[in-house]
Design a protein around this nucleic acid. Structure first.
Lengths: 230, 230
DNA sequence: CAGTGGTCTAGACCACGGC
DNA sequence: CCGTGGTCTAGACCACTGT
């Protein structure tokens, strides 16, 4: 129920393939899907995995299942239900987004502190190495993009769907600005940035919440000139 | 998932019996439940039925399950509402609501830590006094509503329009359910709740970010056994 | 009636967390 | 390392629905 252990669940794969067929018209609206046992045989999975896939599609409103009868492709529900790409940040101004970003990234870093798995920490350390490499080669553009990756990895390590979605939207919103910044970069600015990001990663690895707060504060406050800098 | 065909599902029976044990104190708050395999043996059902029962209790906020560790009796969720409506929270599933609450309230408390004005802090302290008064008079209903006020004041003190909006929606969503919860209150549960909220308020007044994290953690996650010291 | 979904079982393997 | 939860399997029985 909680974290899928990074592996994509079979029910998810099946659900997506069924969705494709519904969208392509192979399964027309209103028609009955093959029985669960038939689908299980076709996809070479257990009936249980098929049932979980169908439950996902039921919750999202794509399928209507009737006991003793079968599962049917339901009408495309206008607007309604799912497709959560509405965007949590709709209607939020750019000026607000920095505030939000500061708070959200601090929260995700702190949660990551408690919830990060071993693989999360390995990814974190790998990105730090990547940051160092980009800086050695003075590739500031690649460096800046990698810092965004770092924040995404931290969000993922928090294992909070809400925070992951928020950080994704925030970094997407800032990604376009990033490439503009690399021209402002000087060696000492870059060095400071690397230090802050490395400290943040290390704080999470060490599970040191106080250090997380400290590095996050430096990230956003002690460097007012480049307030948009990542 | 749909209709149990009129027969009560084993997972429901198990869930209710586990709830009884939690309420009776046989499973104290914060302690770890027997492993799924042990419960399966004890109740003479398959591990699958146990897992479904635990999932029900997770969704209702009574149990916190951690991968590779175990399932733990969670703090009686002071604000346990479900059923999502419109607004920023549209499309957010029930399973995510606890994560969101934890993340959002941590974010707002930390921002409040840095940005609260004098008048914010005064309001904060006033509400804590109000909480104490309600508890002295054993008016749990008023107490619970006041805790919502406290979270709203903290959000206001963060001076982030986004966070204010989020917390407003979350508390509105739960306000109607609050009066149901006060009947579950016992003096020691109330005492612990007061302690957590007072610590949170004091941490903000003292601008002690680490203490904010600590009290927020106690509010949502681990609930050490020290609770029964009263 | 035959076929469907709803539920349950016993067993297996994996990734993760704590020791 | 071991025990834990997360996932998947193959098979079984039941209750329901359509004809």
């Amino acid at each position: 129920m909680s974290r899928p252990a990074d592996r994509t669940r079979k029910s998810q794969v099946v659900a997506e393939r069924l969705l494709e067929r519904m969208r392509s018209g192979q399964y027309a609206i209103g028609t009955r899907l093959p029985s669960e046992r038939e689908l299980a045989a076709e996809f070479k999975v257990s009936r249980n995995a098929i049932r979980e896939a169908l439950q996902v599609l039921q919750l999202s409103g794509h399928v209507d299942t009737r006991l003793g009868d079968g599962s049917f492709v339901s009408e495309p529900h206008l607007d309604g239900g799912f497709d959560d790409d509405a965007g949590l940040l709709a209607g939020i101004s750019i000026t607000e987004s920095l505030d939000i970003r500061e708070a959200v990234e601090l929260s995700s870093a702190l949660l990551a502190c408690r919830r990060a798995t071993r693989s999360d920490l390995l990814k974190l350390q790998a990105v730090v190495v990547e940051l160092e490499e980009h800086l050695e080669q003075h590739d500031y553009k690649a460096y800046l993009l990698a810092t965004l990756d770092l924040h995404m990895i931290i969000a993922a390590a928090s294992h909070s769907p809400y925070l992951i979605k928020m950080v994704t939207e925030l970094t997407d919103r800032h990604r376009d600005d990033q490439w503009l910044l690399h021209e402002q970069y000087t060696p000492d600015i870059a060095a400071f940035s690397l230090e802050v990001h490395r400290d943040l990663a290390n704080a999470i690895v060490d599970k040191d919440q106080l250090a997380v707060i400290d590095s996050n504060t430096r990230h956003y406050e002690d460097y007012p000139v480049l307030h948009h800098q990542d």
